[in-house]
Each structure stands twice: as structure tokens, then as C-alpha cells.
């Protein structure tokens, strides 16, 4: 029976959920009638999801889940969530890493290039530093590993990969990403997975670092 | 066998872990030799925890876990993590809610009053609004519930409660918290739990909203 994901198109947070569902086989459909900025402000929606944020998820038995990492957890399977509590803890660690160490820096650096917000040189330089640190941490961890937790793909890989999409797509040119070969190799493996391609399509790593265009 | 938590004293993120351990019975000791700003910059520490951040955790079998929510997951038990994948998803949702909806606003509002960072009037007003929204969401959810997920305390309650500590301690005076009686009731239940008291001691809700003192 259908499970519904409320989101707007090209939402990298929703990509995490849709990729997880590709691996687990969970039936998740996005509601074509959903209009971001309208539907999520209606009393019916707010009654289910008081914060009015997306992605938002309604399970087949009517349970409403907010926060993208939680929705991933709900549509995943045991393999994706981690085989043991300790593996699950590592999965939670990398999901938090994506939200705490990658996302703020990624948005600070990329959003001005997308025309979404104004550019601030100091913030952007700091964001580049933080992206380097996060990639360095990933790169070290992936020196001896194919995937982030255990031997198979988990929500850790799905979450970190989807949170890196904007960076690899818009600003991580060959020069910037050169020191992080293990991370690049892992990211390339991820975006070439059929289950990932089915959701995000063909992702091309950027050749030229996008700049803010005043 | 001992499991070690590296942190500085009075770290609310570490409180989450220590409270979870109180409930699960996990043996977790904080390393008395740890000096924040020194130990976490040594090569030995960075080799285990490349980001150099705390809290950081080393399990009895030598597994190193970073990010506080992940450490909570590792020291918890099945009851705290959630009985089913769907309950676990709800637990992950509230842990994310604490990090995404409460923490930014709490730091922005309270840290200037604690002398941790400079005051900005606009940011503080926005933070107050965000705190109201988060408390409203909690209050609605707790109208018909004793705890956040299921019938017993889980990591959802532990995480949200510890992330609210600064707010209830410094700025949520009787006037501000008046509209959120269900949330106040739940918070009072939580801080009076022996397992919570054992970690945070006696917490007194603030009488007078702390102000930034230039």
C-alpha cells in the first residue's frame, strides 16, 4: 500500500529518502498534487506535520514522520540501518556528520552561486575550509574502506552522498577535490549505483568552480 | 569493561549520553585526564576522532564514535532506541528536531546571556520566535502523550530534554513558558527522573529571563 512523501522537486533531503527506498524496495510515491508553499500551509497538512516542513512522510498505516533522516530510517531495511546497534550508531554518526559538518558549509558556499542568497566573502572562505575538513575526514575514513559503515551501502553512504551533491555539482572542481581521492572514488561509486541514478539521474562533477555572479 | 566518554564538564551533549547510560546500565566513565583544548588536539586523539570534537566515545572493544546522537545510540538499549523500526524512526525524528529546531535558537538566545558570544538583537528576537514554534510543536504532541515516542522514555525524550536545559534554566521564565503547559509538565517529569537527576543534578526553572549583560 502506498506511502506518501511530500516534497518539492530536486530536494536533496528527499533524494536521501527516495534512494533508501530504491534499496529497500519500499513503495514511496511523491504526491503530485503537493504544491510547496501552499499545501504545506494548509490546516490539514499542519495537523499532520505541525512544523510545515518538507520532506514529510505518511506511512501506509497513517504514521506521520518529519525530519529527513527519520523518514530514511522508516523506509529503509535492516541492511541500510545497520546490522547491529553499534553499526546503527555509526550510521547515525555519519547522518549527523552530513547535517552538522557538511550541510551548513555547503549551503553557505553554493547557495550564493545558485542565486539563492547574497554572497559574503568571509563566510564563503570559512565554508571552503570547513568543506576541506569534512572531505579530509571522509577521505581518511575511506582509505581502507569501500563504504562508510561495514561492507555494504547503508544510510550513512546515502545521507552523506546526497548532502555532497550540490558541492560536487557546482564548486568542487578538479583542483579543489584533488587531495581527496578516496572520497572522490567513493562518491563516484555512489552516483553510479543504479539505485542512486534512478533518483538523481546523471550527475556530472563540476569542471569549473561556480562563482557568485553579482 | 569500561567505555570512555571524552568531554568537558557541563556539556549538555554529553548529558544526553550519560542519561542514556543511566537508563541502559551501560558502564560509561568520563576520562578525568581529558583537558578540552589540549587532549583533543593531540595526534593520538585526532587519530581516533579526526574532527577533534567532543563528546567523543570509545567502546570497550575499541570502536570510536563521534557525534552525540550516535554515542547515545551506542550506549542505549532497545527500549531507549525504540521497539520497532518505525518507533526508531520517530526517535531519530525527535533527535533531529532537537538539533535542527531547538539547538540553533537556544544557542542564539542563551549563549550571549552566558557570556559565550556577542548579542545581536535581531537574531535574538528571531530565536525567541523559533523557540516558541518548537515549544508549540512539542506542546501539541504532548497533549495526549506522557512521552514523545510510545509509552516509555526513549532517546527522543532524553535528547530533547537535554537540548532544552539551557532554555529552561536561563530564559524560559513563567510568562514565556505559560502557553506550553504540556511541554512544561513533560520537562518537569523528565528532570525529576532519578536517572536524569543523577547526571544534571537539581535543575531549577528560571524565575527571571536572563538578559545579555554588556
Amino acid at each position: 500500500s502506498p506511502q506518501t512523501l511530500y516534497t518539492y522537486p530536486e530536494n536533496f533531503r528527499a533524494f536521501k529518502v527516495l534512494v533508501a527506498a530504491q534499496y529497500s524496495g519500499a513503495k514511496v510515491t511523491t504526491d503530485p498534487a503537493f504544491v510547496f508553499g501552499d499545501t504545506n500551509k494548509t490546516p490539514a497538512f499542519l495537523n499532520k506535520f505541525p512544523l510545515g516542513k518538507v520532506p514529510a512522510f505518511e506511512s501506509s498505516d497513517g504514521r506521520c514522520i518529519f525530519e529527513s533522516n527519520a523518514i530514511c530510517w522508516a523506509v529503509a531495511n535492516d541492511e541500510l540501518r545497520g546490522a547491529s546497534p553499534m553499526d546503527q550508531a555509526q550510521v547515525v554518526a555519519w547522518m549527523s556528520f552530513a547535517d552538522n559538518e557538511i550541510l551548513p558549509a555547503s549551503c553557505t558556499w553554493v547557495f550564493p552561486c545558485m542565486g539563492i542568497m547574497s554572497f559574503n566573502k568571509g563566510n564563503t572562505e570559512r565554508a571552503k575550509e570547513d568543506v576541506r575538513k569534512a572531505l579530509q575526514c571522509l577521505n581518511t575514513h575511506l582509505l581502507t574502506r569501500t563504504f562508510l559503515v561495514g561492507e555494504r551501502i547503508t544510510l550513512a553512504d546515502v545521507s552523506v552522498c546526497c548532502t555532497l551533491l550540490h558541492l560536487y555539482q557546482y564548486v568542487l572542481d578538479a583542483g579543489f577535490r584533488k587531495p581527496f581521492q578516496n572520497a572522490n572514488r567513493w562518491f563516484t561509486t555512489m552516483i553510479n549505483q543504479p539505485q542512486v541514478k534512478a533518483v538523481i539521474g546523471d550527475l556530472k562533477m563540476c569542471d569549473k568552480m561556480a562563482q557568485f555572479d553579482p | 569493561s569500561p567505555q570512555t566518554l571524552y568531554t568537558y564538564p557541563e556539556n549538555f551533549r554529553a548529558f544526553k549520553v550519560l542519561v542514556a547510560a543511566q537508563y541502559s546500565g551501560a558502564k560509561v566513565t568520563t576520562d578525568p585526564a581529558f583537558v578540552f583544548g589540549d587532549t583533543n588536539k593531540t595526534p593520538a586523539f585526532l587519530n581516533k576522532f579526526p574532527l577533534g570534537k567532543v563528546p567523543a566515545f570509545e567502546s570497550s572493544d575499541g570502536r570510536c564514535i563521534f557525534e552525540s546522537n550516535a554515542i547515545c545510540w551506542a550506549v542505549a538499549n532497545d527500549e531507549l532506541r525504540g521497539a520497532s523500526p518505525m518507533d526508531q524512526a520517530q526517535v531519530v525524528a525527535w533527535m533531529s528536531f532537537a538539533d535542527n529546531e531547538i539547538l540553533p535558537a537556544s544557542c542564539t538566545w542563551v549563549f550571549p546571556c552566558m557570556g559565550i558570544m556577542s548579542f545581536n538583537k535581531g537574531n535574538t528576537e528571531r530565536a525567541k520566535e523559533d523557540v516558541r514554534k518548537a515549544l508549540q510543536c512539542l506542546n501539541t504532541h504532548l497533549l495526549t502523550r506522557t512521552f514523545l515516542v510510545g509509552e516509555r522514555i526513549t532517546l527522543a525524550d532524553v535528547s530533547v530534554c537535554c537540548t532544552l536545559l539551557h532554555l529552561y534554566q536561563y530564559v524560559l521564565d513563567a510568562g514565556f513558558r505559560k502557553p506550553f503547559q504540556n511541554a512544561n509538565r513533560w520537562f518537569t517529569t523528565m528532570i525529576n527522573q532519578p536517572q536524569v537527576k543523577a547526571v544534571i543534578g537539581d535543575l531549577k526553572m528560571c524565575d527571571k529571563m536572563a538578559q545579555f549583560d554588556p
Binding site: 518539492y8 522537486p9 530536486e10 530536494n11 510547496f36 508553499g37 516542513k53 552538522n100 550541510l103 551548513p104 558549509a105 549551503c107 553557505t108 547557495f111 545558485m114 542565486g115 539563492i116 542568497m117 563566510n123 570559512r126 565554508a127 570547513d130 | 568537558y8 556539556n11 578540552f36 583544548g37 535542527n100 540553533p104 544557542c107 542564539t108 549563549f111 552566558m114 557570556g115 559565550i116 558570544m117 537574531n123
Partner: peptide, 28 residues
């Protein structure tokens, strides 16, 4: 997509707050 992304709540100041918190507790 850009329009919707503009509504995302991102903690852009997180690095500022993290730095301040770290310095405060290092000095403590």
C-alpha cells in the same frame, strides 16, 4: 528548485556559534 531551497532553514551561523562555544569551554 532555487526558490524552494531559499525556504530551507540552514544554520548558516553554526560555525560562529561552534567557535564561540569551543573557546568559552577551552578557557573555562
Amino acid at each position: 528548485m532555487a526558490l524552494e531551497l531559499a525556504h530551507e532553514t540552514i544554520w548558516f551561523d553554526k560555525w560562529r556559534v561552534d567557535d564561540a562555544e569551543r573557546q568559552f569551554y577551552e578557557n573555562k
